[in-house]
Nucleic acid binder design. Structure first.
Lengths: 396, 396
DNA sequence: AATTCTTCTGACACCGGTGTCATTTGCCTG
DNA sequence: CAGGCAAATGACACCGGTGTCAGAAGAATT
């Protein structure tokens, strides 16, 4: 019973910063010792007892004991204040809080973690398919985590490695991560997610479709956006359209493809199989795929590439064939990475709101940290078409 | 005395991964409790003593006590083995090591950190001037850290914030970071570095010039590379050259500028002041700077931009004026980011070896972790010109 | 065999917090 | 004013490791 929901948000006033001036120490021990380990060691020379040195201003970080002593309470009570326990008299709480502020006390996450049997670290695991995506999302996560007391540990992995699962499990377990943010495509790996669940580790999957409960998911509406893109092209009069798909094994591939085809169907267009070509989300694969499509006769008048990198490849292929974008060929991408605005003409593309998604993922985990129920509304983010100058009416 | 240099490389065999199957627990406590905190708690029911349950296969991570008990030694001895203490009999060491392998034991970094008064975390702090740079360098760092037992904590900050220093100090101190990798431009902030030194925190500065001792530095030879670029342009017959500098406050701005001017001087070319324009390392600033330069008369026949983003801006400005690259205008950039190959024509640029630099930074810190002397050779990485298709002979 | 070194090892306190549970305090009731 | 209950607090063990230092085990010397 006792439905106490008082687990503290570890949101401490982040203004500690005591200035520990270095003091050199002579190392004289007999047995093992981290000899010469830290060039400057802060062994605050308060050797043993020293009953009177109570208020000695030794410049080291204050500990919970310091606060307790100065506040005239036990350290357990200080701990209660830290954790927002309701069982503390207002007066006491105030006294302790004031003292903590004055001394710039911040609890030691390691010690707290040791006792809690978990850390205050959030992991972000990814198998880098797309550097730009990783940074942007990471920026979002960092923004969401800012000031929370949680820190972000990034962990790259290789989903094709035989030890993939064990390796990630070991990482999560060793660090006793509070939560993990899993980026696509490994976010679609159910074995991985099961493993996280088993370990009682909070997690958020980043995905291109709703593949989990809202609390464990941040998704974008890829298929709706590509449907929009398809209609955009159809409405410009394009009927011979090429589609470059993502690589197998990515949920985004499926979402973007089915959405696009659905959008075309809505406008009464059915795409022949030969107009759909696989890519690998890389520039080079975009070139190859576009070359294949542009060899078709009749030649497509528009190409949708499932990401911007491949769209850049389409530009390249078109240029080689002397085709002008958008006069001879309309091109649409997906992601809205910076490249899309460096290309000429600027690429019409789908804005993939990964920064916001990253921030939302962080916030989901923070809500879990404070025992708040998941915020279902911030689980799904719309992706949408950004019209620039790479699309125009179909040539006659 | 006792020049023991036996502080262990915390390079454990990374194959732990015990399969903790979840077991639901009824929460019935009276006082505070992390109620409903973890949906699945692993409270291995081994309550109190239970003298006989010694080899009970309770599926939780083995601790140092488990190893000690099973090996018939004290936990201190296990600790010695972990830390490569020379004061352990070979036979004992072998027995303990075998046991650790069998059980997949990995020491708890939090507990170890608590006792050591530092963590096994490496921080990477940056004030994001360039997303691509951050992610590439980060990849390098992760590659260098792989399998070391250290994890990377990324921390974005704002160098213009009044609390900048205190905020970073608090981060370093709270997490008791073993080391910090500081990215430009804040790597050039001496106050920040002093602060790290004071706290006995290992650090590596990433920079565009040699601004610290080899052990605390990973640098690229920006000025040599831009000198090379300058000579390249001069040798193509260009004499009217525009230079777009980085923003004030970046050491890279200075290095790239002085190197470039030195290179030109070497070929007997002196640049008038009006041919040198400030940029901000952004696309937009590149456009603006190029517009300024291309208004000069006589018009420059070549422009060097201090990074690729600004070079992309030059492409844009040139296109607006109907200038063809490289026929009417040669362009050189710096960074060799992916964009440089998406542009048309592919950009001649300086390859900035930030991936390798990131890896080296990680390795520097790992050497410090194992008390090895710094490897001076891997402190400086050459940047060098990559000729592509944006440069050609000066028009007659 | 007793002594004297080394080489190894373990008991115990401690790092800085939290969980458990008994105890104290404050307030209300009878 | 005693009794009873809830609110508030503290003593103590514990999380999983390491530092200190005393002491045991072996090897070399007398």
């Amino acid at each position: 019973m006792a439905g106490a929901a008082h687990q503290a948000p570890p949101l401490f006033f982040l203004d500690a910063a005591t200035g520990a001036t270095g003091c050199n120490v002579l190392i004289t021990s007999l047995d093992e010792r981290a000899a010469s380990h830290l060039s400057v060691s802060s062994s605050t020379s308060s050797r043993r007892s020293s009953t009177s040195a109570s208020r000695g201003e030794s410049n080291r970080r204050p500990t919970i004991n310091d606060i307790a002593r100065l506040a005239g309470v036990s350290k357990k009570t200080v701990s209660r204040v830290l954790n927002n326990s309701p069982f503390v008299r207002e007066e006491t709480r105030l006294r302790v809080n004031t003292l903590m502020q004055e001394l710039g006390y911040t609890p030691d996450p390691q010690a707290r973690g040791l006792a809690f049997r978990r850390s205050f670290l959030i992991g972000m695991v990814f198998d880098n398919p797309n550097a730009q995506m990783v940074v942007t999302m990471q920026e979002g996560v960092l923004a969401g985590l800012k000031g929370s007391g949680f820190e972000l540990v990034v962990h790259a992995c290789d989903r094709n490695d035989t030890d993939f699962l064990r390796e990630v499990a070991a990482f999560v377990e060793r660090q006793k991560l509070f939560g993990v943010i899993v980026l696509p495509p490994i976010s679609e790996n159910n074995a991985l997610v099961d493993l996280l669940k088993e370990r009682g580790c909070h997690y958020v999957r980043m995905a291109s479709a709703v593949i989990d409960e809202p609390g464990n998911l941040v998704a974008s509406t890829d298929s709706l956006a590509t449907a929009e893109a398809a209609k955009h092209l159809a409405d410009l009069g394009h009927t011979r359209i090429g589609f470059i798909a993502g690589p197998p094994g990515f949920r985004s591939r499926e979402e973007r493809r089915t959405g696009f085809l659905a959008g075309l169907k809505d406008r009464g267009i059915e795409l022949p199989a030969k107009n759909i070509v696989d890519g690998a989300y890389t520039y080079e694969s975009g070139i190859a795929a576009a070359e294949k499509l542009l060899k078709l006769s009749p030649r497509p008048t528009a190409i949708f590439a499932s990401n911007d990198e491949m769209a850049a490849g389409v530009y390249h292929a078109a240029r080689q064939l002397g085709l002008s974008i958008p006069r001879d060929l309309s091109v649409v991408g997906f992601d809205d990475t910076p490249v899309s605005r460096r290309l000429w003409p600027p690429l019409t593309t789908v804005r993939w709101p990964i920064h916001d998604m990253g921030r939302a993922a962080a916030q989901h985990l923070l809500r879990a940290a404070t025992d708040q129920p998941p915020d279902d509304d911030s689980a799904v983010f719309p992706a949408f078409l950004v019209e620039r100058e790479s699309t125009a009416s179909a040539p006659k």
